[in-house]
């Protein structure tokens, strides 16, 4: 069983490049990542700089996205906020995918684990998310920020909190697909050939459930970005002057009628990120799906 069913990497890259959606999505995502990584270094205005004389401006040359009610530059804030939102979103998504895939695979492959793990999933689904997050934040914020500093501690806490409470859908999808795959001939054949359960999971089942995992990951990214803003709004996320996309969006809602640009800019950033990741995920899935070749 040494040759994995996964195609060698050059082949995968070639197949991905043949997916126009994946190319478009990947390109857009790369642009967004580059912009938030390099942008703040190039843009001269600091995100927290207040210039009261220039408040409530629409988009113009000095402020391409306009300014907010205190005269802070929205463009600088969107760039800065992207760093945090993307970092939180991607890390939380990774945590959720890891947990969800693990639980789903274990439940699908091992019959005796199915019951307990799925009931656990039900329990997590039934728990009201925000109160749970609030309790986690309250319990662990001080000890974590003592070790990692205020911002680092909050970052770890938020990533773990969001990741740890949004893996359930992935787990259910993965379990369902695993159950269906388990009865398929190639799995039976592998099992008959003496393949151990762990190898069975990793080599035969995982590549075949990758597509739903990637799709739920793309959706999870947007949820993570928005959940972070809900936490900040309740005062349990990052400090209030820390721009994140979610916070920019929720701050702008009360000005929606008078200054729509202020909500549209971070909203568009979130939408484009999610859209590009979804397309990328879609393309990756098609490129990797053994059944499509």
């Amino acid at each position: 069983m040494s040759d994995a069913p996964l195609a060698p990497v050059p082949g995968l890259a070639r197949r991905v490049l043949h997916q126009p959606g994946a190319v478009l999505g990947g390109g857009l995502f790369a642009v967004i990542v580059l912009a938030v990584l390099i942008g703040p270094l190039l843009w001269p205005i600091a995100p927290e700089f207040i210039d009261v004389a220039a408040r409530n401006q629409g988009p113009n040359l000095a402020h391409p996205f306009g300014t907010d009610q205190l005269g802070r530059d929205t463009f600088a804030r969107v760039l800065w906020g992207g760093r945090i939102s993307l970092a939180v979103g991607l890390s939380a998504m990774a945590v959720a995918l890891l947990l969800g895939t693990l639980v789903g695979l274990l439940a699908g492959v091992f019959r005796w684990l199915d019951g307990p793990l799925m009931r656990l999933t039900d329990v997590f689904l039934a728990l009201p998310l925000l109160p749970l997050l609030l309790v986690m934040v309250l319990l662990f914020r001080d000890s974590l920020s003592g070790v990692f500093g205020p911002e680092g501690g909050i970052f770890i806490l938020i990533v773990l909190a969001i990741g740890g409470t949004s893996w359930m859908n992935t787990a259910r999808i993965v379990r369902g697909d695993t159950l269906a795959l388990r009865e398929r001939e190639f799995v039976l054949a592998a099992r008959a050939a003496g393949c151990r359960p762990v190898a069975l999971m990793l080599r035969h089942i995982l590549p075949n459930v990758l597509s739903p995992i990637l799709v739920s990951g793309a959706l999870g990214l947007s949820t993570a970005i928005v959940t972070e803003s809900a936490l900040s709004f309740l005062g349990l996320g990052f400090p209030p002057d820390f721009p994140t996309w979610g916070r920019l969006l929720s701050d702008a809602v009360i000005y929606l009628a008078d200054y729509p640009a202020r909500a549209i800019c971070p909203g568009l950033a979130i939408s484009l990120t999610v859209l590009s990741v979804t397309y990328l995920g879609d393309g990756l899935r098609d490129a990797m799906d053994p059944r499509l070749h």
């Binding site: 207040i50 205190l70 709004f233 309740l234 005062g235 209030p240 002057d241 009360i254």
Partner: peptide
């Protein structure tokens, strides 16, 4: 407390 005006005051 969380309140749009208070967060503006904090920043200023």
């Amino acid at each position: 407390s969380t309140n749009a005006v208070r967060q503006d005051f904090q920043a200023l």
